[in-house]
Nucleic acid binder design. Sequence first.
DNA 1: AGATTATCCTTCTACGTTGT
DNA 2: ACAACGTAGAAGGATAATCT
Length: 441
Amino acid sequence: MKGANLKEYYRYKILSLLLGKYEASRSFQTGTPGKQRPQFAMARSPLAEDYFDEMDHRKREAIHAALDELASAGVVEVTWPRFQEGRRVEKVYLNFAAIPRAYELAGMEPLEQRMERMRHMLAPLSNHPWEWVRRWWVEVDGALAARRTAGLDLDDGEGYENLVRVLLALPGLEDSVPERIFSQRVLGDSKAFEQGVKKRLLSLLKSHGPEEYETDAEYLDSVGLTDNPKMVLAAGPFIFRAGSAVFDAGGLPGGLGLAVQTVRAMEITAVSAPWVLLVENLTSYHQVVQRFSLPGDEEGEGGGVQAAGLPAVMAVYTGGFPHRGVQLFLRRLQEYRENLAATARPPVYHWGDMDYGGIRIYEYIRRNFIPDLQPYLMDVDTYSRYLHAGIPFGDEYAARLRRLLDDDVYCTWRPLIQEMLKHRRWVEQEGITDFENPPAF
DNA sequence: AGATTATCCTTCTACGTTGT
DNA sequence: ACAACGTAGAAGGATAATCT
């Protein structure tokens, strides 16, 4: 590096160091210069190593040259230890009046301008149809107006531009759309969503979203995005109509998978099973289908429980928090039930893990789809019988569980939650095998 | 006017939280 | 589980205020 270049290099280093301190200082926050100027002591600055390099004096000379120039332009003030004038720099101060000039010389964009640009970029969200997006916008816009960064990466303008586009496009989605297709449609690039927006959208959903979920996929599904279209799995004797065609699922020993479009178009016309069971986990769903929905099946499974004679059940796989397709199916089911007299409705039970997520999934379905939902094998008695197979959990998990105790929505779960807190274990649905007995109706 | 005290501000350090 | 980041509190310095 030649002398002049070295000087410019240090000029930038010095100015960006001082401006960085300025941007973090109260003087910037309040917008009015405080009593103390941004400053650094040379000996303990990032420049110290170069400044005190005994092997290469050109570095110190270049730093002095840069400081001389800045000082005579009135941008900075340099102090020297007594009797060392011009020999060893003590401290460097940035003059408030020269801050615009300092930005110019450093080739940096003033933080205030970058913040204003960001506000302008996010402004379209101010009248977003979703309340939680507006709430986030109010927070962020307020922070920027108050000259605080609020966790935004001000250097990633493009990223936030795409985030805004995505947020504006999401409310228009009908069914779940595959990420890549959505990305292509909204951002013009099938990878752009995954690379630049997904992470921010997820953290936004987790911090401000209307509902807490277990997995990223569930969060994305809640706004209409999936990695791949998902089927709705259901089994047992029920009849539905799609267009003019009528289907009887009872004739299919393993049940069926319904595409979201089918669910949208269908109407459930009859449920001949005496009860309906929603199942959280896939393994358990398959077991339920095998044991309940094949009355008279002689094969069994390798000496397993004799299945013959069990009353049939209509089973629906929810897969954790139900995705949009399942939600639509549950609405169809509820539409059918509401057309019947209250006493004629087949009762709907839900069976999931006895853990934080399982309890919340149950209440989520009850709140949003099936008001008279009942739990199946999710109670203190079953918990105690399977405690030996329970999985231990830690303090943080216990704290989350304890929060449910304070929430009235979960009041019926208090005995179970208290039992779980006492033993510090949760019980997996898959471990429970004695589910042959349907509840007494 | 000089010195001492008070106050304000930056910087350092530790802690908690969040993301990988 | 670990690292990185951000925040909050403590300490050190500098300026301002007050007293003698």
